[in-house]
Design a protein around this nucleic acid. Structure first.
Lengths: 115, 115
DNA sequence: TGAACATATTCCGTTAACGGAATATGTCAA
DNA sequence: TTGACATATTCCGTTAACGGAATATGTTCA
């Protein structure tokens, strides 16, 4: 299928493991030319180019032509969308933490009282 | 393609808009039977079932049989993976915020001095 | 102008995902 | 046990994504 989520949103973009790898790469090492990423990922040059194309379309990277090279740079803002979405659920797992914490305190209390 | 990311990880699971909708639904309204989600999403029953299947395989929801119904519940922990991944890039957009902030302060300062 | 280089684009084969309709499975209630 | 109900599974058609090889495009330098 795929009539719906054509590679046009950040969520789909980061679904691809290799793409996530590329993004991490750019985050860790700063702006990078395509060739370097080809080396580091072990993918074919065409594949890397295409992945970068997707990331670019979605606004996750920007390009800077420098002579023959094209330097890709991470546009981290684009990830805020995802961050914000996931963040909404933080409370749900905090609930659990809270419950665990409460339980632990309960235990500590009854332990204290049993002395 | 897809030899790589068969719907087996959370990132792929949340790439699907309808699936995200379902997840949000479960977060907002708590555990829900399939039928309700069919109504709320406007998808065919089979589709919803299948999406829930994916979410379940990935550990994002758990099921509880109650009579004829199956109550699906969000397992928010599963989203931590995503949260943590995205979080790594937080500093990168904070940088920008910092820069903007600095610039704003700069401006305020020179404004003060020009008085 | 023509090599050499870096990258994008095209081409092609393969595969899995999706949607919906139809059907199977399981559960309750009479 | 039969029927109604809730949900899962199967079937089928359609489509887009991926990978890599080959090729096109653009840039630099002699």
């Amino acid at each position: 299928m795929s009539p719906t989520p054509t590679n046009t949103d950040v969520f789909t973009a980061i679904a691809e493991p290799k793409r996530r790898e590329i993004v991490s790469l750019l985050a860790k090492r700063g702006p990078l030319p395509v060739g370097t990423m080809v080396d580091l990922t072990g993918l074919a040059q065409s594949s890397v180019s295409k992945h970068l194309g997707v990331l670019h379309d979605v606004g996750m990277v920007s390009v800077d032509r420098q002579g023959k090279q094209r330097i890709y740079k991470l546009e981290a803002n684009s990830l805020k969308t995802v961050f914000e979405w996931v963040k909404e659920f933080e409370s749900h797992w905090d609930h659990q933490l809270a419950r665990i914490k409460a339980k632990a305190e309960q235990r500590a209390k009854s332990l204290r009282e049993s002395n």
